[in-house]
């Protein structure tokens, strides 16, 4: 076990855990937007920053990526930390003024929109946390979506911003998106996501539409299970 002092409290955490888990384990809350539990971490949102002290040096680190260290002194609420979090929230509120989640978080943190920033109108509620891209690559395994361009023009989407052949319509990206940016509409036999229509499979027992045919085909190919076996919904299985 590793011993640290976090916000004045003695805290122990298992070796090889991240600071974020150690802090939360100690009952201290840390806001995050990009550290989704089902995907790897990128450190993109910067909300989880904390100030650490080693010897005489203090510095700001990304707690979701910083491994615990013996004797570390951690301050999760220093002025510098609060200043970064405030700025990140102000910037995100200006980028995605419509996001309910951001509004709620800002309220909890006592942060208001910075009136000097002109709110964006073209970004939807996408905060570029990358969870969708990572889930598609790491969990689903199709890498249908990616992050294109760079700097302030960066966007998430399908290659060439066209319908993607690689997409199987599974909706995992919708599930991990913290701000409900990705639109998926399902109308019984049809599902639409990332601009493409998917035919839904009706359960061979109950007749309910339950998954895109392309997704079942993908699973069939990967696992060797026949399409007939897969054409039964989870409830009837």
């Amino acid at each position: 076990m590793i011993n640290m002092i976090i916000d004045g409290k003695n805290v122990t955490a298992p070796k090889d855990t991240m600071l974020l888990e150690a802090i939360r384990g100690a009952g201290i809350s840390v806001p995050t937007l990009c550290a989704h539990e089902s995907v790897s971490r990128s450190g993109a949102c910067r909300l989880c920053v904390v100030e650490i002290k080693k010897g005489n040096r203090t510095r700001i680190v990304t707690s979701c990526l910083y491994g615990v260290e013996e004797g570390l002194i951690v301050n999760t609420k220093s002025d510098r930390v609060k200043n970064v979090r405030r700025l990140v929230m102000e910037l995100l509120l200006a980028r995605c003024p419509e996001s309910d989640l951001l509004q709620k978080m800002a309220k909890e943190m006592g942060i208001e929109a910075q009136p000097r920033f002109t709110p964006d109108t073209d970004k939807g509620t996408c905060i570029l946390c990358r969870s969708c891209v990572r889930v598609c690559e790491e969990v689903v395994g199709v890498s249908a979506i990616g992050l294109f361009a760079r700097g302030s023009r960066k966007t998430v989407g399908t290659p060439f911003m066209e319908q993607s052949d690689a997409c199987i319509g599974c909706g995992a990206c919708v599930y991990v998106c913290p701000t409900n940016h990705i639109v998926m509409t399902s109308t019984g036999e049809k599902r639409k996501i990332w601009g493409r229509n998917f035919k839904m499979q009706a359960c061979s027992k109950c007749g309910k539409f339950f998954a895109p045919v392309d997704q079942l085909k993908f699973i069939s190919k990967k696992t060797g299970t026949s399409m007939e076996d897969l054409a039964v919904c989870t409830e009837c299985r």
Partner: peptide, 17 residues
């Protein structure tokens, strides 16, 4: 702003503002 990779919020959004 042009050269920021666009990954993290303070640089991507902050430099632009």
């Amino acid at each position: 702003q042009e050269e920021s990779c666009g990954k993290c919020v303070p640089c991507r959004e902050g430099v632009r503002r």
